[in-house]
Design a protein around this nucleic acid. Structure first.
Lengths: 254, 254
DNA sequence: CGGCTAATTGATAAATTTCAAGGGCAGTGG
DNA sequence: CCACTGCCCTTGAAATTTATCAATTAGCCG
């Protein structure tokens, strides 16, 4: 896709791990859009990567009020920040896609304000520490980007109806996958049940189902075996009033 | 109230400014709950404070996609992060109360992801720089706290009805004012029109009005000249499933 | 074939928006 | 002093969106 992916390909993105390799591609590609590569100092990330661990779906990676441990990154699979109310209502506040950190890497020792759970089986990269000053700016930008996506989500939930919310969410996911170098055309993985989509969008699963069906009938989405295709992204952007999220002036590696 | 307020009282919280003094009390008190005072190094804040400026209501302090300038803090008055959709719908994503920073102080040079506008007339403290390493942790905690409040707001918008949302919001404001050392009993300022409340809660102003009236009839809030009183906070907590927000283990200055 | 989970459907109720209008109150200018 | 204006709050009625409840269907896996 972008030449950033090319720059970061091959041996530069992987680290040896007990006979296998750990693919840092998604996180490096994502970060390469947040700050210049030479400043990013991908080596600092690689040299602090201790190991990778595979976990199953619905594994809790972080609980509310837990002291944030050493940084971890999602190398494969999806996860989410979720909160459950006393009466059982659930809200997914933020989705974590491949390349995303699990809890802010800048906040070691602070308390998590929500629990993080895997949605699919996943591969987690464990770092020793990420105190390298060369990394600081890009990690802060990563946090800023997370905050920007939280604000997008606030606008979705506060001002848009279910149809608009879903359109907006799909475009945001597409943008984020693209930033991590994951191909989104002709289709991309959407490993969410309709109930999970409902918990993201703040509607019931029944209503999520009807909304999705309507969007299908309108020819704006197509599902095939857990994959989703967006035949007309421009129409979706129009419906959702979608604005790409940019948190730094850096336009990506070239 | 808390002994933090006492510790920070008197000459320690103020800085001379062209014959007047700049009252750093709210921000120092707020930060004192986020990290130990000795680490906080309030002197670093004071010595970097350049001046204070008074601005009117509805003054734009930051616009979307603007490069974040030198840090500023809200010394008096209220402001908000707001986004306006193409068709005019407005969402207030976050309220800024006295003691809050205007845009993250850790993100100099990055792009703002929303515009910030004053709600009331306000007094803004301008810093030269806040790169002091002694301040870094507490400023990062301040950012973490903002993110926590954004997540609270996501749960409100995604899962609660208008009545619960308003109850939850009032409790959160009360908690935040208390943290800045602003008295909340017997009542506190709520300088928001019903339309602004509606734009926070993600409902129409008509519905906000009816919700507020209901809560008044239920004896849970009382208004008098822009002030609000919460006669039964425990009942509100029950209704809103309110959990205090804590982002560090530090319990405040003693 | 069960036994599970997820997706779907229909009918009804509740929450919320929309539209339209009226009222209070403070400032302002004749 | 009073009319006028602007802003905010309030109200009613009807339309729309979304939730709730209760089944039913589809698909997957052992």
């Amino acid at each position: 896709m972008s030449s950033a992916a090319a720059t970061l390909s091959g041996r530069f993105v992987s680290v040896r791990d007990r006979g296998g390799t750990i693919d840092l591609g998604p996180v490096l590609r994502r970060l390469s859009h947040l700050a210049p590569l030479q400043h990013l100092n991908a080596d600092a990330l690689r040299s602090n990567l201790r190991q990778a661990r595979d976990v199953g779906a619905r594994t809790q990676l972080l609980s509310e009020h837990q002291v944030l441990p050493a940084p971890r990154v999602l190398l494969r699979g999806w996860a989410c920040h979720k909160r459950i109310l006393a009466d059982g209502r659930k809200q997914i506040m933020h989705l974590l896609l491949p390349g995303d950190f699990i809890g802010s890497p800048c906040r070691r020792g602070m308390l998590s304000c929500s629990s993080v759970t895997t949605i699919t089986s996943a591969r987690i990269g464990l770092f020793d520490e990420l105190v390298d000053p060369a990394l600081r700016d890009v990690l802060l930008s990563s946090d800023a980007q997370t905050e920007a996506y939280l604000m997008n989500h606030l606008v979705r939930l506060g001002q848009q109806n279910a149809y608009e919310r879903f359109a907006h969410l799909l475009l945001e996911i597409r943008e984020r996958l693209t930033a991590s170098g994951i191909p989104v055309t002709p289709f991309f993985d959407l490993p969410l049940t309709q109930e999970a989509i409902a918990n993201v969008l703040g509607v019931t699963s029944v209503h999520a189902n009807r909304t999705i069906q309507q969007m299908r009938r309108d020819g704006l989405i197509e599902f095939q075996a857990g994959k989703v295709q967006l035949p007309d992204p421009e129409a979706l952007m129009q419906i959702a009033d979608y604005q790409p999220t940019v948190v730094t002036n850096w336009q990506g590696a070239r």
